[in-house]
């Protein structure tokens, strides 16, 4: 799944521009990003991965539900 921005789901009535941005738009950065990955073939955990899209270096990985709870 795409950018970790998917974690910040808007309110139902936030308006169509907010929703369009949430679902479709992406910063799509060539560099350091926060991605949302899923351990598909394993424990099914969703993970926020801080990584670099040019070098594929992985800086940090956190469980998504921990990131969400912290917000």
């Amino acid at each position: 799944m795409g950018h970790a921005s998917m974690l910040n789901r808007p309110e139902q009535d936030a308006g169509k521009d907010v929703w369009n941005a949430y679902l479709h738009e992406r910063a799509n950065i060539a560099g350091d990003v926060e991605d949302l990955w899923c351990h598909d073939m394993g424990c099914a955990a969703w993970i926020v991965v801080r990584r670099n899209t040019i070098s594929h270096t992985i800086y940090e990985a956190k469980l998504a539900n921990e990131v969400r709870d912290a917000d």
């Binding site: 941005a21 479709h24 738009e25 992406r26 910063a27 799509n28 950065i29 060539a30």
Partner: peptide
């Protein structure tokens, strides 16, 4: 694949993921 970077130069955010 670089569309988001060039679009950003015009202040646009695209619905694109590379």
């Amino acid at each position: 694949g670089r569309s988001s970077q060039t679009a950003a130069m015009a202040g646009l955010t695209l619905p694109i993921e590379s």
